[in-house]
Amino acid sequence: MATGGRRGAAAAPLLVAVAALLLGAAGHLYPGEVCPGMDIRNNLTRLHELENCSVIEGHLQILLMFKTRPEDFRDLSFPKLIMITDYLLLFRVYGLESLKDLFPNLTVIRGSRLFFNYALVIFEMVHLKELGLYNLMNITRGSVRIEKNNELCYLATIDWSRILDSVEDNYIVLNKDDNEECGDICPGTAKGKTNCPATVINGQFVERCWTHSHCQKVCPTICKSHGCTAEGLCCHSECLGNCSQPDDPTKCVACRNFYLDGRCVETCPPPYYHFQDWRCVNFSFCQDLHHKCKNSRRQGCHQYVIHNNKCIPECPSGYTMNSSNLLCTPCLGPCPKVCHLLEGEKTIDSVTSAQELRGCTVINGSLIINIRGGNNLAAELEANLGLIEEISGYLKIRRSYALVSLSFFRKLRLIRGETLEIGNYSFYALDNQNLRQLWDWSKHNLTITQGKLFFHYNPKLCLSEIHKMEEVSGTKGRQERNDIALKTNGDQASCENELLKFSYIRTSFDKI
């Protein structure tokens, strides 16, 4: 039985969820670079991206490699990797027998973001014989899940209580170790020597080791999670996991709180800001991140802002960003909400898709409305799209047979046209069989910064309504002859009103 693990408890099935942008060198404390989270699957090609990484700022997932063999891993080693800020997950990587050479110096898994409450997941690794993470000293947050690894031993010899604050939620089941077939031998045991430290858990006094050649490092209890030197002297209180010299914040392997210019500090002093819960960055760093993602459509890219001495992905609820200094300031009234469309555009074809934009005031991208039916549609669209004030790209209304009016965009005031449909149009209306009105132009103002209007096959939309939009939106004169079809717009509506004058002759039985 794995020490510190839980057996036999019912657990939810383990679901495996399925960018080499360097964020800056980590400095003297770390020998390499800070790398983003990685999802490495199918083959070993991307694994080489770990070569210079000291910190993975995010998670590391290595999974679904069915053609790899043990010899493929023999020359692979990433000794610079010290810390993973989120979680480490391995799933069905064939041929991998140990992690001792792959990650010989991995010391800390912070667990800032977890995989279903777990910071370390080893699942269905069919050839893994031992973990071998002999320098792993601290899992700051989260638990361990090690399950269905039929060859995995050296679990009962690990004292997880020396690595985690609590072992109650560890789930370590259905491994070879369960069948008591392992016969784990710690260093020196074969020669009758006791080389590794022994600890007591559940009444068992057991030597602690990761492999037959690597003991588990056990520091004096007084050192807590700070770690200790090879001689057993406690590291500085700002260290986490390990250090090369005692009581020196510049000799830590990793930091308990924050890293700044080669030393570990309790908090980031001005003019620095907390970033990702582990390091200090200056304003320029946060500003660069903001600008890199301002026009990016890459998933996970955030326009970072500053709030409460932190550089964070977005302002919290009730705050909006001051564009001059990136500071989050309290909103006066309802907060603006910028919604970034991942692929640059979004099609609204149902109430469900409209709900995804609920509360958005600025759309960074283009909207395509293609709704053919739905219950209580006008009210639903207004509830979900009615706060949109600005669209950076274009607005396209296409084959939306259920629409009679666009009044559900009740606050839309600006279409920038930074991206144009077919390279020309910022407003595009095609084949809307029941569209009769755009907006009530006596109450609604709309500016279209650039781009043209396109109207074709809107049989109940009168040309007068379209011409009014040209005047109000500032697009009059931009359109070419064929942009607004004269014969297919309003051709099934009563669009022309003329005053009919009647004269009559009164007659009676005795007068003409």
Rank of each mutant, 00 (worst) to 15 (best):
H28N: 14
Y30N: 12
E33H: 09
E33K: 08
V34H: 10
V34S: 04
V34E: 03
P36L: 08
P36F: 13
P36W: 04
G37Y: 09
M38Y: 07
I40P: 00
N42Q: 09
N43L: 05
R46L: 07
H48C: 02
E49H: 04
L50N: 01
E51V: 09
V55F: 03
I56D: 00
G58P: 00
L60C: 04
L60D: 01
L60Y: 00
Q61Y: 02
I62Y: 00
I62H: 01
I62C: 01
L64K: 09
M65E: 12
M65G: 04
M65Q: 08
F66K: 09
K67N: 06
K67W: 14
K67P: 08
E71H: 15
E71S: 12
E71N: 11
D72A: 04
R74D: 06
D75G: 03
D75I: 10
D75Y: 15
L76A: 12
S77I: 10
P79K: 04
K80E: 03
K80T: 08
L81N: 00
M83H: 07
M83R: 01
M83P: 00
I84G: 00
D86K: 01
Y87P: 04
L88P: 00
L90M: 14
L90C: 12
R92T: 05
G95K: 03
K100P: 02
L102M: 09
L102K: 00
F103P: 00
F103K: 01
F103W: 05
P104Y: 01
N105M: 04
I109E: 00
R110W: 02
R110H: 04
S112K: 11
S112P: 00
R113L: 05
L114N: 04
F116A: 11
F116H: 04
Y118V: 02
Y118R: 02
A119G: 05
A119F: 01
A119P: 01
A119D: 00
L120S: 00
V121F: 02
V121Q: 02
V121I: 08
V121D: 00
E124G: 06
H127D: 12
L128Y: 01
L128K: 01
E130C: 03
E130P: 01
E130K: 09
E130N: 09
L131F: 10
L131K: 00
G132E: 01
L133Y: 02
Y134H: 01
Y134T: 02
L136F: 05
M137Q: 14
N138Y: 14
N138L: 11
T140L: 06
G142M: 01
G142C: 00
S143V: 07
V144N: 02
R145H: 15
I146F: 05
C153H: 04
Y154R: 15
L155C: 14
T157M: 04
I158K: 04
I158Y: 07
I158W: 05
D159V: 05
D159W: 14
D159A: 06
S161L: 12
R162C: 14
R162A: 10
R162P: 10
S166F: 07
E168F: 08
D169C: 04
N170C: 10
Y171H: 08
Y171R: 01
L174S: 14
L174P: 14
N175Y: 05
D177V: 07
D178Q: 12
N179P: 08
E180D: 03
E181N: 10
C182Y: 04
G183Q: 03
G183Y: 07
I185L: 09
P187R: 05
P187L: 12
K191R: 10
K191M: 09
G192I: 02
G192K: 15
K193V: 03
P197S: 11
A198G: 03
A198P: 09
V200S: 12
I201V: 14
G203P: 06
Q204P: 11
F205L: 10
E207R: 09
E207K: 07
W210Q: 06
T211N: 10
T211Q: 02
H212S: 04
S213E: 10
C215I: 05
C215D: 10
Q216G: 05
K217G: 06
K217M: 14
K217T: 15
C219S: 04
C223Q: 04
K224N: 04
G227A: 07
C228L: 02
T229F: 15
L233K: 11
L233Y: 06
C234G: 01
C235Q: 00
E238W: 04
E238G: 07
C239G: 01
N242P: 10
C243G: 00
Q245E: 14
P246S: 08
P246G: 12
D248W: 02
D248K: 03
P249E: 05
P249N: 03
T250S: 06
T250H: 04
T250L: 10
C252M: 03
V253D: 15
L260M: 04
G262Q: 09
R263P: 00
R263A: 01
R263E: 00
R263V: 01
V265F: 01
V265P: 00
T267F: 15
P269C: 01
P270T: 02
P271K: 03
P271G: 08
Y272G: 01
Y272V: 02
Y272L: 13
H274T: 14
Q276P: 02
Q276M: 04
D277H: 14
W278L: 05
C280V: 00
V281I: 12
V281M: 02
V281P: 01
N282C: 02
S284N: 13
F285I: 02
F285A: 05
C286S: 01
D288Q: 15
L289E: 11
H291P: 02
C293P: 02
R298M: 03
Q299Y: 03
Q299S: 04
G300Y: 04
G300V: 12
Q303W: 06
Y304I: 04
V305Q: 03
I306P: 02
I306W: 03
K310P: 01
K310S: 05
K310L: 06
C311V: 03
P313L: 04
E314H: 03
E314A: 08
E314C: 03
E314M: 06
P316I: 06
S317W: 14
G318V: 02
Y319A: 09
T320K: 03
T320C: 14
S324V: 15
S324Y: 04
S324T: 07
N325K: 03
N325L: 05
L327R: 12
T329K: 03
P334G: 06
P334M: 14
C335A: 07
C335F: 04
P336T: 04
